[in-house]
Design a protein around this nucleic acid. Sequence first.
DNA 1: ACCCCTGTTCGGCG
DNA 2: CCGCCGAACAGGGG
Length: 264
Amino acid sequence: MPELAEVEFYRRQWDVGLDAKVLQIALHPRKRIFRGTNTRSLVRHLTGTKLLRSTARGKQMLFEFSGENWLGLHLGMTGKLRVEPPAFRAAKHDHLVLRQARRSLVFTDSRQFGRVRFHHGALHPEWWPAELPQIGERTFTRSYFDRFLDRHRRAPIKAVLLLQSGFPGIGNWMADEILWRAKVAPARQTAVLSNAERAALLREVRFVARESIRTIGAEFSDPPRTWLIHQRWKRGGLCPRDKRKLRRATIGGRTTAWCTRCQR
DNA sequence: ACCCCTGTTCGGCG
DNA sequence: CCGCCGAACAGGGG
């Protein structure tokens, strides 16, 4: 499920638990979701702390707790955050439950492609990409964008848009949406893109990120009906612009939908 | 039953 | 060492 805007939506689900203490923590340390994480340390340090704030960078979320404690969550393909009553019983895929007096904060992920990390210390954890320019920040400039594309000249632009080290938060549907709006075919190598095509791509990267956060990120409401996302998984889905049947193929390792007429 | 999947990581190859 | 690709991870839904 989760790309930039969905991550933002789920992060906010736990806002109701801000400024409240974590009384108890329920987890199963052997689950794959905790790979590489010291769960004993997590439980020992986090119990009794207060949830102070949270942020997201791309698809990664960071929850800060009192006493210099940091919980990193990644939703993978099927992760979700939600809130349940205090005495709620965790179901099979509810891998982490933070009990507060008034509620339980729940992290669930059936496929466990997501991840739970923990860090105790005064500064951000080393795995937190604090310096990586985010789409929508002033640091995400045309020259930064160009330099990233130039480092991946032989790859199809679709694959490059999916690289989290350059486009934090972009996932499969957003990449298709961006390419469709910019009228660029997904298999084009970045090396052959014109200056005008690069400009269009950067413009649409920003637009799709901003608009999806405004709609999906705030209320999980649908993006405008004219967006490709509403057509791309339908059998016989049509290009919203010229009503031609969308083509589907695997590009950059992922199923890709595009219009062969308006994307060149 | 069978095929599909909004993500990341790792090993192989050039 | 770098960039690119395909497989693997795991479970649920159509």
